[in-house]
Structure formats: C-alpha cells, structure tokens
Design a protein around this nucleic acid. Structure first.
Length: 810
RNA sequence: GCGGGAGUGGCGGAACUGGCAGACGCGCGGGACUUAGGAUCCCGUGGGGCAACCCUUGAGGGUUCAAAUCCCUUCUCCCGCACCA
C-alpha cells in the first residue's frame, strides 16, 4: 500500500478522539498558552477553504507548543445566533435551533476531518441556554453599572433585515450584513455606553501586539478630537447654542454658523420669511438616506434661517444656516464656520457667497481662493495676533472659559452601542418593565431567560420583535411587587455572545458561575488570536469594551482580552477574484480532502504564502505538498509490486555530518518560523531536510528520522503519527518532546565566499569556517580568476564580509 | 481626497540588520522505468548570446566597494476611512 491518506487520517482522528488526546486541564507545573480562533457562524454552506487557513496556522502553533511542554488551551465553538438561521425559519418554518444544530454538525465533521487539535470537551454554542444564561448575566452587570440605558433614539434601521443596527454595522449608509440601504428611524432601544470607555479603548491599544492597521482602524473609529465647545448667542433673542470646534484659534474667522437640519433650535429661530424654505429643506433631508447624504461628490446644500448669531470673539453678527453637511449626531450638531481655514466651510461659503476671512497666515494662496487648514500664525484675531496655532488654541480656550463663553472639550466619533435587535433568534434581554415603577432586572436566579417558542418568526417591521406577540411570555407579574409587568421583547445583537466566549472556554462546564476565578487567572489573556480582519471595529472593539467592564468589576484579571492578534489573508478563487457562489469559483474543502487528504490540504494552505497575505487558490498547486508527503512516506517504505515494504530505522548516530548539520539547522529554522507564523518557509525547510534524509541509504537512522517526524507533526499530524507509531512508539507524538537544536552542530565547517571585483562576482573560494579575516582576504586575492583580472595591479580596497564575500575594488 | 500595504521568473512565492537575487513548490523541457503514463524517479529551467560575457527585483535618478533592501521623483494595484467640524 503506498501513502494513503484516506486510511491513515480517519484512523488517527479516531485515535485522538477515543483517547481524548487534546483534552486540556490547568496544570500548575506547566506554563500556559492560549491560542484561539475566531469561532465561526455555522452557516448552511459549510466550511469553505478560507476557514481552515487561520485554523491550520493556530493548530500548528497549538501542536508545537504542546510538544514544547506548554499547557495549551485550544478550543472551538459556535457563534450561532443570527439572521440566516432566522430567515431560513421564516421561509421554511424550521426552528432556527434545528437548522443551527444541523449546520454545527456539518462544521464539526469538516473541522475534525482536517485534524485540528481542539479540545472538543470545551465546545460551546452561544445559542445554548447554559451559555446565554451568562451572556444575560453579563448584560445585567452592565445594566447595574448604569452602562445600559433605554432611549427612544433615531437609529440605523435596515429595511430588508427589519432591525436596528449599531453604528459599526451601518458603515457608509449600507447594512453590514445584507448590503441594503439603511435609514434613520426612531425606535425604543437599549444602548450600551461604550463611549464611557473611549479613552481606555484607545490608550490600551498601545500595549497590544496587533497589526498596526487594526489598531489604527480602532483609533480612527473611536475618533477622539480635542477642542472646545463655544457658546453662540442668537441675536435679538434669549436663545443660544453650542458648537464644537477643534480650532478655537480660528474663532475670529467664523463668518457664519451652521446647524444640523434636525437641530432643535431651528424651529425656534427661523424667521417667518425663511420658514417655508427651511421647512422644505428639512423635509428633504429627512427623506435622504444616509448614503445619499454622505455622497461626497455632491455640491453642498443649505438654507439661511433668517436668524443671526453673535460671534463671541468679535461681537459681530453672523448668519445662521442649516445644511446637511452638519451631522446632528456628532458634537453638538452645530458648527461655527471658518471658510478661510476649513475645506468644507470654504466650499459652502463660496457657493452661497458668504464672507471668507484670513485669520491664520501660512497658506500659499489667498484664502478666498483656497482655504488653509494647516497651522500658522494668527492675524486679524485681536488678542491672538502673532501667536502660533497651538498657542492660540490654548489662549482662546482659556479666554472662553474666563468669559463663560465656552469650555475645553473632547468629542468622539464613536457612538454608544445600539444593543437591541427587533428579531427572534438572539438572547432575550433579561429586563422587565413594571407598570408604574419602571425597568427592573430579571433576578439572576431566573437566568437563563429562555427564548420562548413562537409560531411566526416574521419580524413585525414595526420596531417590535416577534416576541412581543406572545402574550403569555410578555405579560408577567413583577416578582418583587406583584404588579403587572411586561418583558423586554428586544433581543441582543449577534456580537453579544462573541463578546466573552474566550472567557467561557476557560471553564465551559461551570454551572454555578460564568467562569471560576482560578481558571480565569490560570489561562489569562489569549496569547494568540487568529481571525479575519473584517472584525477590526466590530467584535474586537465590543469585546474589548466588555472585558474592561469585567475588569472594573474584578471579574477578570487582565486589562485586555487578546494580547496578540493575527489576521489571516483572504484566499481568492483560482481566477484571482474573491470566492463567491455567484462567480462559481468556490472551492469546497471536502472535495480537496477526498483527493489529497487533510495533511496535504493543511500543508498546501500554509505553503501558499505569508499567512497575512491575500493569495489565490490553485488546485494544481496541491501536487507539491502531496508529493512531499509521499516522499516522507518513502523515507520508511520501499515501493514494490505487492504493496510497500516497511524499511524500519537503524540505531546509532547519524553517520553523515552534513545530514546532521542540516537536521539541526532545520530544527532551528522550523522552530523560529512557527513562532513568527511563517509557515511557508518552515515547510520549505522541511522539504529540504526530507531531500537530505532521502539521500541517506535505508534503513535510515532513527536519530535523523525521529526529529524530522516531530518537526513535521504540527503541519501533517496524521502522517507523522502513522510513521511515528510504525517506528515503534506506542503513544501519540502529541506530547513528545520538541527537538532541540545544537548551535554547534548548525555551523558549517567550511564556507564558500564569493569574490567580487568592482561589484561583480568573478570567483568563488572555499575557506575553513574558522578562518580569520586576513586568511579569507588572502584566499580571495589568490583565486586564479582574480589574479588574472588584477594583472599585477594593487587593489585600492578589499572588504571582507564574514561568511559572505570578499569585495575587491580596483 | 486622507491613511496603510504591496509591485521580484510563465505562476505562488524566498532573500537575516545593505553583502552571491530567484530558496521551496507549481508549471514547462529532456531522460529513465513502463504495454501505457495525467504515477514515480533523475536532469534542466529568469532573459539574451555560439562563446567570453551582458542584462534583470514596476519606471527613472541618487547614496555605497556593494541596493529587491536606504534616499528622491514617478506609475500601478490592493485594503481601510471618507463632509466627524
């Protein structure tokens, strides 16, 4: 029988399962290592080849760390609440729990067939009441801390999903999930005060070993701006309004103000002459989707209100306009416009012929032509004249504060997290509304608050979830006062379950608490977190927020949940395009496995290129790793007509010093490469070593074969186990000791130097590795090709680079 | 527009801190074994030239004994953000 993954692989998968090889426990004698994959949403389509990329990388790390003596936590679970299962239920009437269970079974079978070393005893599912019980419990902690509040607020509403969305899910006015348009709608909401943690969410990024791009995305999403709020009085009225500006130094150049069309003051200050036009504009704005409103190319629009404000610095009256380029939801919903020094204000002022003043010197053109938004020196600014921008800012902020006309202020782009979904398939929010009293938490003893059975999953579209239709569930008595009460009928967003799953993995079967303190302490932060970059500002921001709240409550011992983050790059289709059903370029891992086996699949995905890079799939490329595995097989087998003959191994030392050297160099390289997640170059090194071992006559020395198999094991665990057992080991190699290299054995005893003359390689000389610089120089100059080129001339300069080359300059 | 990343053989990709560009693999060419080969093994494989040699890391310039790597200019592609005052 030649190398046959279809018999080897299931055998070892059963072996691992039967023996619970990868079951993990806290072990005070060992150092811990927590390596986590972002758990998947178990969709109906099953795994595609993108999933196993990150999973394979983390599995290689987990397996090698185990062999290096770490207690390794490497779990897997299911992020199973969410819309697809619910939409399927609406169409077919199948309960989402049933669909979810089927999908989970498929995913699990596929993951097992890839030989991942998960501790399946720790499997969790966010839709399991024993899990969401604790999701609800954490929500109550937030509620108790005043971090959850109810509000009737204009929020992002997806027309096709018929649910409200968080800001993070509606980027660019488009629904993150379905791509449909998002409109503003006033809906009663539960909202989490993530903004209270904005500064810490920024500051603590500094200590994390994350891709710089993800940190930048989070910083920009939080969008901290320092500046001042400035009070403008409305001329001839007792009304006043505040604006937020990052450039208080330009206040002398504020020649008009703009309110967001939705601003409450608009109603009161609009003059009767302007009333009709203002009303028309506000109506128009309301109808515009966010998408249309943020359309960048559009010319700015706006309407004069007929009212004037008083510039607190100049005392002059400036017109108040409304325009949709000012957002109601940011800052104070009102701005002072400084057209001389702001691009947007400049465009607006030009269009509506509003005055443009220069108050900061530094631009290359007159401000009437081109705004200058950089720093400079103040002019035409009264007491600020002559001050550089940074000082002028400070000076003006101070002046505003002493005059009672403003205060220093910080504003964030980040909004509080809209946490309600008007859908069925999510965690019920464990709150009740008691008549005459208000909102009360469901007692912890009553958790989990189970999702009731419903007849119709159809979202109502009215802003109520399908739960609202179940009278028996909704209408209850307040357990404290006995008064009539109604249950909260909104459910939580899908992000809730994933906000803390990494904590539950530490103690997944705990029935008394979400996790024990001992388990939490032992496993600490996730040491390596592997997943897609698409969660950069969603899951990764939300779970950091929850984690910090839990930290403040003394429930977790670290400030941050994920110490090191790696984003695997997308695998494209063979056509170089993103894999998608509609393009028909989706590769199904089941098909690949059938033909080449899991080991070849794993090797191939890792060999493709750097983990983080986007790279195209090429099914033909699988031949390389597959052939490599066959060659590994043949290190111990001889092919013959009636099946392969096992060759065994020989005892005694490695006779060939070159082979020993290659072995130790490879141990070093593979160990380092796994550490840096450079799996592609590690595999290349293993291929080279295989070639060297193949040149040693059979039976090949155990001393050479064993370490090779151990190095191979994290990458191709099935074949490695098979061969390991064939050379006489009764136990799995999963905990065998990782090979250690001997630095002395890594060094060559002679080195080839390239000899360059004027930068061109003209000769090669081989010199003993311990030769000194002078000896190397002499050997280089003595090379016959060099002597003829020199033709008796004396070189101007000779440079010796140790171990590399001799450079002769004529 | 702003921010980030990347351009290396026919293809995926290697190259430590500036030190022999093209590791490893795919593909391709030749050969061996074979009834057969789309299996396996061996040899070759950046381009040009009979050769000595010359050219080659998106393009152009520079620094250096030496540049894929550092500096300047420029082009292209990918990702993120996008009226946030």
């Amino acid at each position: 029988m030649p190398y046959d993954p279809s018999t080897i692989e299931p055998r070892w998968q059963h072996f691992w399962e039967r023996n619970k090889t990868f079951r993990t426990a806290e072990d005070p004698a060992k150092r811990k290592y927590y390596v986590l994959d972002m758990f998947p949403y178990p969709s109906g389509a099953g795994l595609h080849v993108g999933h196993p990329e990150g999973y394979t990388a983390s599995d290689i790390v987990a397996r090698s760390k185990r062999m290096q003596g770490f207690a390794v936590l490497h779990p897997m679970g299911w992020d199973a609440f969410g819309l697809p299962a619910e939409n399927h239920a609406i169409k077919t009437g199948t309960h989402p729990a049933l669909t979810t269970a089927q999908n989970v079974a498929t995913f699990k079978r596929q993951l097992k067939s890839l030989g991942f070393s998960y501790d399946w005893d720790r499997e969790i599912n966010t839709t399991d009441p024993e899990y969401y019980r604790w999701t609800q419990w954490i929500f109550l902690k937030l509620f108790e801390r005043g971090l959850a509040y109810e509000a009737l607020a204009p929020i992002n509403w997806c027309e096709s999903c018929k649910t409200g969305l968080a800001n993070e899910e509606a980027v660019g006015g488009v629904c993150d999930r379905c791509g449909g348009p998002v409109v503003k709608r006033n809906i009663r909401q539960w909202i989490l005060k993530i903004t209270a943690y904005a500064d810490r969410l920024i500051e603590d990024l500094d200590g994390l070993d994350w891709p710089e791009s993800v940190k930048t995305m989070q910083r920009e999403w939080i969008g901290r701006s320092e500046g001042a709020r400035v009070i403008f009085d409305v001329a001839g009225s007792a009304e006043r309004f505040e604006v937020f500006t990052t450039r208080p130094d330009t206040l002398f150049g504020a020649t008009y103000c703009v309110l967001a069309p939705e601003h409450a003051l608009v109603e009161k200050i609009t003059s009767s002459a302007q009333r009709a036009e203002v009303d028309r504009y506000r109506e128009e704005t309301k109808r515009k989707s966010d998408l249309a409103r943020t359309e960048l190319s559009k010319e700015k629009t706006g309407v004069f209100t007929g009212a004037y404000a008083v510039n607190p610095a100049t005392g002059q009256q400036v017109p108040i306009w409304i325009a949709d380029y000012v957002l109601a939801s940011y800052g104070t919903g009102a701005i002072m416009a400084v057209p001389g020094h702001d691009d947007r204000d400049h465009a607006f002022a030009t269009r509506f012929r509003l005055p443009i003043l220069e108050v900061v010197k530094g631009g290359s053109k007159p401000v009437a032509e081109e705004p200058y938004s950089g720093d400079g020196v103040n002019v035409a600014s009264g007491f600020l004249d002559g001050l550089p921008s940074s000082e002028a800012k400070r000076c003006m902020a101070h002046w505003l504060e002493t005059q009672g006309k403003g205060v220093r202020a910080i504003t964030y782009k980040l909004r509080d997290w809209v946490f309600s979904r008007q859908r069925y398939w999510g965690e019920p929010i464990p709150l009740i509304h008691v008549e005459g009293i208000g909102v009360r938490a469901v007692p912890e003893s009553e958790l989990p608050l189970r999702l009731p059975e419903v007849e119709r999953y159809q979202p109502t579209g009215t802003g109520e979830s399908p739960l609202a239709a179940i009278d028996s569930w909704v209408n209850i008595k307040d357990p404290v006062t006995g008064r009539p009460a109604k249950r909260e009928t909104n459910t939580m967003p899908q992000w809730a379950g994933s906000c803390w799953y990494y904590l539950r993995f530490k103690d997944p079967r705990n029935e008394r608490e979400a996790w024990s303190q001992a388990a939490e302490r032992y496993w600490g932060s996730v040491d390596l977190y592997v997943g897609g970059v698409e969660h950069a500002v969603l899951h990764l921001l939300y779970s950091r927020f929850w984690h910090k709240v839990l930290f403040d409550l003394g429930l977790v011992s670290t400030k941050e949940p994920f110490q090191k983050l790696v984003n695997q790059g997308l695998i494209l289709g063979e056509d170089g395009e993103k894999m998608s059903k509609s393009r028909g370029n989706v590769v199904n891992p089941d098909d690949v496995l059938k033909e080449y086996g899991a080991d070849a699949f794993r090797l191939y995905e890792m060999f493709l290129g750097p983990l983080e890079a986007v790279k195209p799939w090429n099914t033909r490329g699988l031949e390389g790793p597959y052939r490599f595995l066959q060659r590994c097989w043949r290190l111990l087998h001889e092919e013959s007509r009636d099946g392969d003959k096992f060759l065994g191994v020989s005892d005694g030392p490695i006779a060939d010093p070159a082979a020993a050297r290659k072995l130790h160099q490879t141990i070093r390289k593979v160990t380092e490469d796994i550490d840096k997640l450079r799996m592609n170059t590690a595999i290349s090194a293993l291929m080279e070593l295989q070639g060297v071992i193949a040149d040693v006559p059979a039976p090949r020395p155990r001393a050479l074969v064993e370490p090779f198999l151990l190095l191979l094991a994290p990458f191709a665990p099935h074949l490695a186990e098979e061969l390991w057992s064939k050379i006489g080991h009764g136990e799995s190699l999963a905990y065998a000791q990782w090979p250690v290299f001997d630095p002395a054995l890594c060094t060559e005893d002679s080195v080839e130097y390239a000899v360059q003359i004027n930068g061109k390689v003209r000769a090669r000389v081989t010199v003993p590795a311990d030769a000194g610089e002078d000896a190397v120089r002499a050997a280089g100059l003595a090379a016959p090709e060099v002597a003829s080129q020199l033709a008796g001339k004396t070189p101007k300069k000779v440079i010796v680079v140790k171990g590399k080359l001799v450079s002769i300059v004529l």
